[in-house]
């Protein structure tokens, strides 16, 4: 400690303080400030460029995503349209079928009714014919002499052949 204090030179201390102070002030003004500012600017520039690139990338991504979305939407819409059309077609077909069936049924019913009517009419006419025929046959049979059984049967047969059933 003693030798150390003995070695300590007050003058050198002041010279050093003086030089260091001036050096700090000068270097600060002429070197460190411009250097640090330039470094800062450069780093900021790099950062900005990186940010811009990132932003552009994100935008690009967004764009592609929205494009994709539009496409998807269009596809969905097309699919919807197609489906709708198909449904409409199916509906139309089934409706037509149904209508046709109904109409056919109605026609069949009508036809049946008509047939029934005709049949009834025919039956009625037949009945009346048969009645008249039987009356005529009976008249004729009564009119002629009924000599033999064979002659009678032949008569009935001829009469029956005469009487055409419609």
């Amino acid at each position: 400690m003693e030798t150390l204090l003995n070695d300590f030179s007050v003058g050198l201390f002041f010279m050093q303080a003086f030089i260091l102070l001036i050096l700090i002030v000068l270097m600060r003004k002429f070197a460190w400030k411009p250097i640090l500012d330039a470094l800062h600017d450069r780093e900021e520039g790099i950062q900005n460029a990186l940010d811009a690139a990132e932003k552009a990338r994100l935008e690009m991504q967004n764009l592609t995503a929205s494009n994709e979305k539009l496409l998807q939407e269009a596809r969905i819409e097309r699919d919807g349209l197609l489906k709708e059309a198909r449904e409409m077609k199916d509906n139309m077909i089934s409706a037509a079928k149904e209508e046709a069936e109904v109409q056919a049924n109605a026609m069949i019913v009508k036809a049946q009714i008509a047939i029934e009517g005709e049949k009834n009419a025919a039956m009625a006419e037949l009945k009346s014919h048969v009645a008249t025929l039987s009356l005529e046959i009976a008249e004729k049979v009564l009119g002629q002499e009924l000599s033999s059984k064979d002659e009678q049967l032949a008569l009935v047969d001829s009469m029956l052949a005469e009487a055409k059933l419609n």
């Binding site: 030089i19 002429f30 070197a31 460190w32 250097i35 500012d37």
Partner: peptide, 17 residues
């Protein structure tokens, strides 16, 4: 040393400027 620092870093600063 002061002179060397001044020359060296002065040149660096001038380069940026």
């Amino acid at each position: 040393t002061g002179l060397l620092m001044f020359l060296g870093f002065g040149a660096l600063a001038r380069g940026y400027k």
